[in-house]
């Protein structure tokens, strides 16, 4: 199975892992889940759309990252998954 990982579990960052999948699955573990779960999911969905990816499993372990960090980490994880060919 192809995978890609980017980011860290340090404060203000997020560790994002992506796995080859035949369906879209987004799993979010966040220290601010109660308030920002929907926003984090929105950023992940929008970034996947920009990258023309429909089916994938994304696991985001968020430590208070802002939108641009989640987006950057997801893009890097996707690139790493592609280069894992």
């Amino acid at each position: 199975m192809k995978t890609g990982v980017a980011g860290t579990k340090e404060s203000n960052d997020a560790l994002i892992s992506v796995f080859e999948s035949d369906m879209l699955e987004i799993e979010i573990q966040s220290i601010v889940d109660l308030m920002y779960h929907d926003q984090i999911e929105k950023v992940i969905r929008e970034t996947l759309k920009e990258e023309h990816i429909q089916n994938i499993r994304v696991v985001c372990v968020d430590k208070g990252a802002l939108d641009y960090t989640i987006r950057a980490r997801l893009i890097t994880a996707l690139k790493r998954m592609k280069s894992d060919d």
């Binding site: 980017a6 939108d67 641009y68 960090t69 987006r71 950057a72 980490r73 893009i75």
Partner: peptide, 15 residues
Amino acid sequence: KASARNLIKDYLLGH
């Protein structure tokens, strides 16, 4: 390195 560049790029364009 590439990951850091992505992060800086999205920070500069998104913060």
